[in-house]
Amino acid sequence: MSMEEPLVMARGLTKKFGDFEAVSGIDVQVERGDVFGFLGPNGAGKSSTMRMIGCVSPVSAGRLRVLGLNPRDEGPAIRARLGVVPQEDNLDNDLSVGDNLTIYGRYFGLPRAVIKERAAELLEFMQLAERRDARVEALSGGMKRRLTIARALINQPDLLLLDEPTTGLDPQARHLLWERLYQLKLRGVTLVLTTHYMDEAEQLCDRLVIMDRGHIVAEGSPRELINRHSTREVVELRFNSMEDREHSVPRLADLSGRVEPVGERVLVYTDNGDATVSAITSNGVHPAAVLVRRASLEDVFLILTGRTLDE
């Protein structure tokens, strides 16, 4: 493998299940040291893409190389150097916390002494050291996630794949996990993650692609994407009812910025939030609540697809 070769290189990558095309010819490139994200709503094709990169799902069409190798012919050799954190927990409930790491290390053919040393380190790093002898079932959701990540690191992977790493966790557990993932990033581990949380993508990713219905609709750093596709600020108007909102939308039409109705809210994209708020009020629109905020990746997704991430 040459030094320049990207860790993941996909061209026209496609996944079909019967007639349904889950991933439609995407191009992706992940460089060593990157934290790379797939952002999109459920069903966008993120997990299918991850499973192809993880060499557990055959490519339907297009080209894919992972760590410079072809997943079709060299799955085991590639997987030997990957760490995988799946969306659905699949820890071994028949084994203790410590044994989950030991046995997983053995799947990679690592010597017991090496596993023992790494397992102790990883349990410490993931703040699970006191739980070593506990049963997996006794762990909280956040602890299970951390154990799954520890398990994925037992072979010191070149590339760590995380599919929706914080879905289903409470805010505190999420923040702890983000902090740990950030530590991994600082250690130079290459991370590829999927998420439908824009704050997760903004906090962690150096680069990301926004996926929708099997296609990549935008690519760049979080900041680039926002600058390219959105205005600097967003004015959020909340109305008491859909009718109120319906009445108000025509009166917002002459504003310079783009106007996006979302449920009982209307988002107005602008480079000067305060000026826009004054203009709205002088047009005689009186929403129940007004909020001026900075644009986020959520807005980029809305502008590009006309839908929200959690739809």
Partner: peptide, 14 residues
């Protein structure tokens, strides 16, 4: 139900 076989095929095991 527990999906531990899925965890195994994410490693060099087939």
């Amino acid at each position: 139900w527990m999906r531990f076989f899925h965890a195994m095929v994410a490693t060099p095991l087939t």
